[in-house]
Design a protein around this nucleic acid. Structure first.
Lengths: 147, 147
DNA sequence: ATCATTAATATAGCATGCTATATATCATTG
DNA sequence: CAATGATATATAGCATGCTATATTAATGAT
């Protein structure tokens, strides 16, 4: 009647996330960026000059977490925070040239981690895995439905 | 040609792990234990008096991480570290009465989180999800094959 | 037995995530 | 327009995880 961790989705997800994070960190270490910085840049490569609030929503992390990540990215010369001309409370987050140049190598590194991780799955299994994950996320996600 | 995070196993896993952790924390908050403490107790409920090294191996976290978690658990009155009679370098980790009493309520809370998370999946999908997760973990896991 | 190596834990320092709270600015309303 | 409430960001404090290094004790080789 014991709790079997190998049958616990939460336990397995935690374990897997740590393994992925470790691999990713290794794969992008030579670019001198960390996983959370990479995640943030994913959004900024797609659209530069977003506000902190927009990034918070897209990455589904707390505002305080994003503020700290951005502070480290600014320290590391990846972004600059510029005043928002239309609202003095907020700022626009702009990638530096250095950060822009990282898009190719960083996304390639991340892509190869995914390939390595899923290497033992068939094409159908991979699709199913992603689909199941998205469905469980949707179930747990705390209603990101408001405006 | 952009990196699509909704198709990245690593990204989705990270997101899902944060959602699970948040739910678990909520569900066990009233027991005054934190997720990592719960994970550690899972092993100690199964077998009390283990060494730190044994816990490190079973939970697949770094030794320093476990040392810190155990320090917090000791601070919170969940465990006691006692000298190992056969090896003065190591210690035996013993659950307190307080920690022993938490097994029922804590495993129930964790179980219901899993149920909630997987509520939208069929029985077959749930089994597949766990299986896929175990397979990807096995692929990424850095050879825990030594003695 | 002694010296070098290995092994078990601890500590320092950092990144990422969280909650709770503070601050500044905007928007609304009387 | 002044007061109030909402919004955007920052900061404090903590847990969990990591790497790197220190400390202490056991082992092994000479």
């Amino acid at each position: 009647m014991e709790f079997d961790k190998s049958k616990s989705a939460g336990y397995l997800t935690n374990h897997l996330a740590r393994l992925f994070a470790s691999e990713l960190q290794n794969a992008i270490r030579h670019l001198e960026i960390a996983p959370a910085q990479f995640m943030t840049m994913l959004e900024l490569w797609r659209e530069d000059g977003q506000t902190q609030k927009a990034l918070v929503k897209k990455l589904d992390v707390e505002q305080a977490t994003m503020a700290n990540t951005l502070t480290r990215m600014e320290r590391d010369g990846l972004i600059r925070r510029k005043p928002n001309p239309t609202d003095a409370r907020s700022q626009q987050i702009w990638l530096t040239q250095k950060a822009k140049k990282l898009e190719g190598p960083a996304t390639e590194a991340a892509g190869s981690i995914n390939n390595i991780a899923l290497a033992d799955l068939s094409e159908a299994d991979r699709a199913q895995f992603l689909d199941l994950m998205r469905r469980v996320i949707a179930t747990l996600q705390p209603e990101t439905r408001d405006a």
